[in-house]
């Protein structure tokens, strides 16, 4: 390898799948190509679900692997060579960013947009990981927060993908549950 090539590598850091790197504050601070910035992540949650930026003010965001963003509320080195930093939060580096079910479970109750309230039967179907027709939804297509009512309050269940009158449950296999319908 020539010296020029070596310095070019140093000049253009790439995403390292073995470590957690803190997201740059803004697109202008971006050094690793394709990496989401903190600003873009905050914008996305605000735009998609109307979850305010202040909700995430104390948290830091990290990338490990291609596009997987983690949310963290503690102290960590940058980069961090550990197994996990906080919890998985958002999948980026794809046309439509996708929130994780856990992020939606943790923060989704604050959402006021792209939230689909399910009735008891629909909620059980969703939790089991099954797709269902819900033609009456007249909001956006794409990733929605599916909620249902538990003892008088709306609670997020997970992430659904709404396309062509159908709500596809994207609850991961390991988190699917066969639950009785609670009327």
């Amino acid at each position: 390898m020539s010296d020029d090539a070596r310095s070019a590598e140093v000049d253009a850091p790439t995403n390292d799948g073995q470590q957690f790197d803190r997201l740059p504050a803004t697109p202008a601070d971006r050094e690793v190509e394709g990496r989401a910035s903190r600003e873009e992540v905050l914008d996305w949650w605000e735009e998609r679900f109307e979850i305010g930026r202040e909700v995430f003010a104390e948290y830091s965001f990290w990338e490990k692997g291609a596009g997987k963003v983690w949310i963290f509320n503690g102290e960590a080195t940058d980069p961090s060579e550990v197994e996990a930093v906080g919890m998985t939060f958002l999948r980026t580096r794809q046309e439509h960013w996708k929130p994780t079910g856990r992020a939606v479970s943790r923060f989704g109750a604050r959402a006021t947009k792209n939230v689909i309230e399910l009735d008891p039967e629909q909620a059980a179907t969703f939790a089991a990981g099954d797709d269902q027709d819900i033609p009456e939804w007249d909001g956006d297509w794409g990733y929605l927060i599916a909620t249902h009512e538990v003892a008088g309050e709306s609670v997020p269940i997970g992430v659904g993908l709404y396309l062509y009158d159908e709500l596809r449950s994207v609850v991961p296999k390991g988190s699917r549950a066969d639950l009785p319908v609670v009327e």
């Binding site: 509320n73 503690g74 080195t77 996990a84």
Partner: peptide
């Protein structure tokens, strides 16, 4: 990790070391 995510824990760091000679080097 599955349990921590299911319960919505955001302040944990997970490490895979032999605790008898645990190194704090990966930490802040």
């Amino acid at each position: 990790r599955h349990n921590a995510e299911r319960l919505g824990i955001t302040n944990s760091i997970v490490t895979n070391q032999d605790a008898r000679n645990f190194s704090t080097k990966p930490l802040a």
